[in-house]
Write a protein that binds this DNA or RNA. Structure first.
Lengths: 212, 212
DNA sequence: ATGATTTGTAGAACATATTCTACAGCGGTT
DNA sequence: AACCGCTGTAGAATATGTTCTACAAATCAT
């Protein structure tokens, strides 16, 4: 069976429906692809240790955190792996960050099937995929450092902390989740508030709602 | 073809992958079902006007708003329609509200395939599906005659405190504004959280946003 | 290439928030 | 009239969060 060995995909998303949907799409394009799935960080890493993967399709948010730092771990295990971020979050907010962290494509979950197929083809043939929108952003951010929206002022870690804050996590929980001291969390909180010119959680939640 | 006319499903979600994934699942259970899809409010309504639907599988959040008031519109068009909410949001926070609005099932996107199938079967055979968790909630709210609008649970002073909290006021500021001791503010905060079954400010803000 | 800034991290002292308990007044029930 | 739960209020002990300072590593700007 399977006379021509073909590509291996790993779909990482905490929602099984999404994995199924992506799976289907892939099969339409690469009919004898090998498709693996993972629903958590542990599963992703475990799979990467066992199988060489051509393309990792990676959601941003998992129950156990965001996948930013997973990228480097994945690359450490498989330097040649291609990573396509597939997220429901606004690309304007996250794409640059993730591309910078080592992903080579960013696709919004709000895409239609055609875009999705293009993204998959793009990743497989040229190793990358980004929308015009993001290309423009890259250009802009190259030309002038003017942030398009206030959240871009935040560093990766700051965004991470901010996202936990708006989920309702307290400093203690955050410090445990990220394994940093509580005073560190406070420092981040302060810097976030300062950068965004706000001074309370309610405003932070407001801002994130506005810009995503 | 299709000798035995069977069920018609409408999958409403702004992410096409999700629609595909759900589609797949449905086909496994109801192999000759008719499956329609919609990615926006307009599409949902348009479809409802053209086709009688047995089960509407409905996401909560769409680019053009949340689907709460879409439920009554759907029921207006097709009083017999069954609606299963399929959402990534915490069921504890939203399920009752949507059930009350006319949905008869609530399924979290974090479910596995088996749960999803159970939900689909539940909806088709008995017209409803809810998790034990939500059953408990309903029971509680029945026994204690909790009004659906949680804000009605709060006493005048509690609402006053809650409003200040969601404006971003800290306990100190509230205690100064209302001329009560800070420990009193904490007591109120606790009672508010308890009455609304939440435990952090982010959820309070969420709730207040939903109810306005 | 080098100095300036940002980023990620904490310790210690201090400020704020929560918990647990309590109690009096009010309104409804028996 | 006596009881009950809900409301508005706190004190004290405890838990959590903030500030201020600091420092190394990374990144940026010149």
């Amino acid at each position: 069976m399977n006379p021509k060995p073909t590509h291996t995909f790993l779909i990482a998303d905490d929602h099984s429906v999404v994995r199924q949907g992506v799976s289907l799409l892939i099969r339409e394009l690469f009919f004898n692809a090998q498709i693996l799935q993972a629903g958590s960080f542990k599963e992703i890493l475990a799979t990467l240790k066992l199988h060489p993967i051509d393309l990792l399709i990676l959601d941003i948010s998992f129950p156990d955190g965001n996948s930013l730092n997973l990228i480097s771990q994945a690359k450490a295990l498989q330097p040649e792996i291609k990573i396509l971020i597939f997220s429901a979050y606004d690309e304007n907010l996250y794409a640059l960050r993730y591309l910078n962290a080592g992903a080579s494509g960013y696709l919004n979950k709000g895409c239609n099937e055609e875009e999705m197929k293009q993204a998959l083809r793009g990743m497989m043939v040229s190793g990358k995929y980004i929308t015009q929108n993001i290309k423009d952003q890259i250009l802009d951010s190259y030309i002038s450092k003017k942030p398009l929206n206030p959240l871009e002022l935040l560093s990766d870690r700051e965004v991470e902390v901010a996202r936990l804050l708006i989920k309702g996590f307290g400093n203690m929980e955050i410090s445990e989740t990220l394994k940093i001291k509580k005073s560190t969390v406070s420092t981040f909180k302060n810097r976030i508030f300062e950068k965004l010119s706000i001074d309370n959680l309610a405003d932070l939640i407001d801002l994130f709602q506005l810009y995503s």
